[in-house]
């Protein structure tokens, strides 16, 4: 356990020093501001537009950070030879990869909380008011989706080099966002096999499960029992990806 915590805290420190979150915060700040301006010109309700933009920006920033940092984290460590140096000590490879994931996840949660505070500040400035529990749950679910993407990034970077891992995770992220809509929009002439395949993928890999912005903007009360499933789904995906990453790295030669 101490090895995992040691690697996780070191990863957290290194990622914080990377200062990628600074542009992330600036972009979020600007998004909030422009959302406010656009709200005056939109035919949508002011609240809906603000939350739509906030949720989209929130997801985009965090997902990109998770993809780029997740893949870069392991790739940089391998390139610098630090992985070699650490694994030459009494640290199990599985502990190393779990530590890396936890460090990244902690950083993403830290960024998520900071972005939520900025969003709240902007909402007060735009005279929308304080966020309730439902709105905070929406942001919490989006942070869960970042952590899932982070786990996927760690998995791919444990298997492949930086570029392949980056493109693979990026592709998987886009599929996860769009597959549900694609499965609904398939033409009736689509072959049964293709329809079933898309349906199966949508069943198991659907990042829209973490998007409840429509319920928030339409002010439909959230059913928290249903949301537990969404959080469980995130947990299962993380466990699956990190387990696969552990298996992949334990079989790999650090040549």
């Amino acid at each position: 356990m101490r090895h995992i915590l040691s690697i996780a805290s070191e990863t957290f420190l290194l990622l914080r020093r990377d200062r990628v979150f600074l542009p992330a915060l600036c972009i979020m700040f600007l998004l909030c501001y422009f959302a406010g301006i656009a709200g005056y010109w939109s035919i949508e309700t002011y609240r809906k537009l603000i939350y739509d933009v906030l949720a989209a920006g929130f997801h985009l920033i965090g997902a990109l950070v998770a993809i780029f940092w997740g893949t870069k984290l392991v790739a940089d460590s391998n390139k610098e030879g630090y992985t070699e140096l650490q694994l030459a000590g009494p640290i199990k490879r599985s502990h190393w990869i779990i530590g890396k994931f936890l460090g990244l996840a902690a950083t993403l949660v830290f960024i998520g909380m900071t972005l939520t505070v900025i969003s709240q500040g902007m909402l007060i400035y735009q005279e929308v008011g304080w966020m309730g529990l439902d709105e905070l749950t929406m942001f919490g679910l989006i942070i869960c989706s970042w952590v899932v993407i982070a786990a996927l990034s760690i998995l791919f970077s444990a298997i492949a080099g930086y570029t392949i891992a980056l493109f693979s995770v990026f592709g998987m992220w886009l599929i996860g966002l769009s597959i549900k809509n694609i499965s609904f929009a398939l033409h009736r002439d689509t072959p049964e096999f293709a329809r079933e395949t898309v349906g199966k993928i949508a069943q198991y890999w659907d990042l829209q499960k973490f998007n409840i912005v429509d319920q928030i903007t339409s002010q439909t009360p959230l059913v928290y029992r249903d949301l537990q499933w969404n959080f469980s789904y995130a947990l299962v995906l993380c466990l699956l990806f990190v387990t696969l990453a552990c298996i992949a790295i334990s079989r790999k030669d650090m040549a």
Binding site: L14, D18, E80, G81, Y82, L85
Partner: peptide
């Protein structure tokens, strides 16, 4: 076991 690699492999940002 201690290991001193040929080139510096400690993270630059620590």
């Amino acid at each position: 076991i201690g290991y001193m690699p040929e080139i510096n492999r400690l993270p630059a940002n620590l």
